[in-house]
Write a protein that binds this DNA or RNA. Structure first.
Lengths: 226, 226
DNA sequence: TCAGCCGTGACATACCGGTGACACATCTTA
DNA sequence: TAAGATGTGTCACCGGTATGTCACGGCTGA
């Protein structure tokens, strides 16, 4: 899966530098589309949906503000302004037209990249929330819904948090003590065996996929893809 | 309904300037909490959920990075670093620890404010329209009218804000504590059970559609399409 | 073969959430 | 202003169940 990225910038040198950086750093993460004048950018924005837009303000043809408004009418994809105009008013105007952020030239491409990732993560959060997957098991942290082979299963609270901890440490062996500390917290007087029992109940809930939770004798438990 | 904002900054002068700006500009939009040292900030972060955190890096006690990590363990609320450290490494380290953005001192408070709003809008994706829908239930934020199957129902204030909060976080499981913090605000001496009771009264109002509010035992409540 | 480790069935209880009732404050209305 | 209605927090009770505990027995490796 890759993200569709639109970069709009009239300086061809900068345009190339930025798009190369995203392509190389991302290693296939980005599907980069570029535009170097306002009208071309407008056409591309209205045409296809993007996951992120980097947008210069001063452009031949339409201005960055126009493009931002056009993009906003279509979708609410994240937009970052790239601007040489560091003046107070221009930046505020950018926010008013609905951008998410701005970067003042000259900027560090590496920073811009980090900012892009953070923004993208934020923009995708609202949709489904974070989903943990491992083999046939999936767990949605937001809705706390657990699915096995895409079929929802009901699961108790302790089993849920145990599964969550296992999934967050996929392929690692977790000792009983470790699990107790993380899932049960600072409860002092609990029997170790409670972990075994909760593992058992969890396995029952998982049905066919219960085999994904491996017992590592003398060490603890581990969850794996198969 | 206001947004819970935490500002962490050891310069009391700056702290006051920023918090005053948010309070005045927002006119009740912000419920501002401040901290001026690392340990205080850590305590506040672990204690209550926030909708936005502004975070200085250089602090007496724990560092901003530590606080950011602690906050991330708890929730995914937007975090903006305020930093005098403009070095490449520090900024990238900030992104790695999971912040959303950074601002280098000295900064324009007005810009920071605009950035905050943009980020908040992004984080609360979907909640900026005035009509919220979920299955047969619809809620109009402007007129405060709630309808079930297109038929208007009367609903009390607390029930309204509870429903609003549920709808703004459709499909998410919300804990009692979380609900208390957001719907009841900083009232300290309220019984957890008041949430249950308000849920009950809300369900009564919703009639046939009451089933859309699910109880997730041991974890909280969630509203779903069906 | 024996000790340690783990799975399993059974059990008991503490906990959790739904519910009815009530107290109190605030608002409405005569 | 008095009386009633309404909104909201609190409490006690209860049924169901989530979860901790225990005992037994099988498996495994030294």
């Amino acid at each position: 899966m890759s993200y569709r990225l639109l970069i709009v910038e009239d300086s061809l040198e900068l345009l190339e530098a930025v798009s190369d950086f995203y392509r190389e750093e991302g290693a296939g993460l980005w599907d980069v589309v570029t535009a170097s004048d306002g009208n071309d950018a407008l056409a591309k924005v209205t045409e296809g949906p993007f996951d992120l837009i980097l947008l210069d303000i001063m452009l031949p043809g339409a201005s960055g503000f126009d493009i931002c408004r056009a993009a906003r009418r279509k979708s609410d994809c994240p937009i970052i302004f790239l601007t040489a105009l560091g003046s107070e008013d221009n930046i505020l105007k950018g926010y008013e037209t609905g951008c998410d952020d701005y970067v003042v030239k000259p900027f560090s491409t590496r920073h811009l990249y980090a900012k892009s990732l953070a923004l993208l993560k934020r923009a995708n959060k609202g949709s489904d929330g974070e989903e943990l997957r491992c083999g046939d098991i999936s767990l949605n942290k937001k809705s706390m819904i657990v699915k096995v082979k895409d079929k929802e299963i009901t699961i108790n609270s302790k089993e849920y948090f145990l599964l969550l901890y296992l999934l967050e440490n996929k392929d690692s062996v977790l000792s009983r003590k470790n699990i107790l500390d993380h899932v049960w917290g600072d409860v002092l007087d609990v029997n170790d065996r409670v972990v075994d029992n909760t593992i058992r109940r969890l396995r029952e809930c998982l049905g066919d996929s219960s085999g994904q939770i491996k017992t590592v004798i003398g060490r603890g438990y581990r969850i794996t893809e198969a």
